[in-house]
């Protein structure tokens, strides 16, 4: 796999009809590029969790992706309420999701921990009242900056 690709998907807050379609499209792109199935699944799950967060909480957002022979990098930037306490949000089971989100099968406080579990590097920057930027990296073939020199 020597090809590279990048692009962006735009997300609309509360648009539950299309929620998940950006991640689904990203999965298709990764599949088409011949990325190993396990990495595709990890990237798709992490992207889906992040996309759902943006659609549940934010007015709008965008998902950028960059695929290189070394890594898959996905950045979710949203115009949302922000996360006041990121450490608390990272705890399994902590959630501020309303009931109607739970009725859809989400909002159980597993999203951010699951993104961390499926990725090699996770960075979250959030400003209350402005929005959140979440970026994750999954290295291909077990590469990381430390081991690849």
């Amino acid at each position: 796999m020597t090809k590279s690709s990048d692009g962006v998907f735009f997300l609309t807050g509360k648009d539950f009809t299309n929620a998940g379609s950006a991640s689904s499209n990203l999965k298709g792109i990764l599949d088409d590029m011949g990325i190993p199935a396990d990495i595709v699944r990890r990237a798709a799950i992490a992207a889906f969790e992040a996309e759902m967060n943006a659609i549940i909480y934010a007015v709008a957002g965008m998902m950028r992706y960059s695929i290189t022979p070394e890594a898959v990098t996905v950045t979710l930037q949203d115009m949302g309420p922000g996360i006041p306490d990121i450490d608390l949000a990272m705890k399994e089971g902590y959630s501020t999701a309303p009931d109607y989100i739970r009725e859809m099968g989400f909002g159980s406080g597993m999203g951010l921990p699951n993104i961390k579990k499926n990725t090699d590097k996770l960075t979250i920057n959030s400003v209350v009242g402005e929005g959140t930027t979440l970026e994750f990296v999954i290295y291909l073939q077990g590469l990381s900056p430390e081991t690849s020199g």
Partner: peptide
């Protein structure tokens, strides 16, 4: 669906009582 995403149940049959489109999207990514 959070559990489906969190517990790596890939390549399996999903049995559920939820019928919204997110169930299908969850199944797709997982």
């Amino acid at each position: 669906m959070s559990d489906v995403l969190a517990f790596s149940v890939t390549q399996s049959l999903l049995i559920t009582g939820l019928t919204n489109v997110q169930v299908v999207r969850t199944a797709d990514v997982a």
